[in-house]
């Protein structure tokens, strides 16, 4: 989706130009930790800046226009969702990956709906984080098992759930559900591909499609989450 830099796109792990990353988190200690981890072992990812508050982040992201922003979900003054709301319209090329210690479903879904391309927990290892950065930069979505679980839950057809309004957006296909289920079980994309006898590319397509539905669907639970957070 970041088409203006075709050389670093999807396949190019060893491209000359490193992926520029911007950190947004109100905990300085955590920023320092992530920066150290990414600077140390990951040559193709470069941290270009960091911010500790929503306003600071908005200004700095406008200024730097990094490839990827690592965004804390919980911050004073509106948190990650607020940053997304203010920056995205102006800088559509910047990709956001949400990071959080909170596993509250509504918080996670709120940033995803505000436009983040993925969600990982802060306990993730440096290597996995770098992977996730590469993947969102390449245009994919990053679903941690927990996020996959949340999304499955939202789209489940439990008794009493409101009937879908737009089937194209409000229902997951059988295949998407299978992929999500395997993600929630802790499978990597490659393992999912092997399990379902499809290509990794197809897995990525399914996950992106689920992300799109999560962002655009008007399902009752989703809109309630969103309106609780005044997103809509």
């Amino acid at each position: 989706m970041t088409d203006e830099q075709p050389d670093t796109d999807s396949t190019g792990g060893e491209a000359q130009k490193p992926i520029t990353v911007f950190l947004v988190d109100d905990h300085g200690l955590f920023r320092a930790g992530v920066r150290a981890e990414l600077d140390r072992g990951v040559p193709d990812v470069e941290v270009v800046g960091e911010a500790g508050s929503v306003d600071e982040a908005v200004a700095a992201i406008r200024h730097h226009t990094p490839d990827v922003v690592l965004l804390d979900v919980h911050m004073p003054d509106g948190g990650g969702a607020e940053v997304l709301r203010r920056v995205r319209p102006e800088a559509p090329s910047v990709v956001f990956l949400a990071l959080s210690v909170s596993d509250a479903a509504e918080d996670v879904i709120a940033v995803i709906r505000a436009g983040a391309r993925g969600y990982v927990t802060k306990t993730i290892s440096g290597r996995d984080l770098a992977d996730a950065v590469r993947r969102v930069h390449g245009g994919d979505a990053v679903f941690s098992p927990r996020l996959a679980g949340f999304v499955l839950d939202v789209f489940s057809d439990r008794p009493g759930a409101a009937p879908p309004g737009d089937p194209e957006l409000d229902l997951l296909t059988r295949r998407e559900r299978d992929v999500l289920r395997l993600l929630a079980r802790g499978y990597a994309y490659k393992e999912i591909a092997g399990e379902l006898f499809i290509s990794v590319k197809t897995v990525e397509t399914h996950v992106s499609s689920v992300l799109r539905k999560t962002q655009l669907s008007n399902r009752y639970e989703l809109s309630r989450w969103a309106s609780d957070r005044r997103l809509v």
Binding site: A104, A105, G149, R224, D228
Partner: peptide, 11 residues
């Protein structure tokens, strides 16, 4: 968590 417990509960 607010006392209203809005949103779908954490699973």
């Amino acid at each position: 968590r607010g006392s209203t417990g809005g949103g779908v509960k954490a699973p």
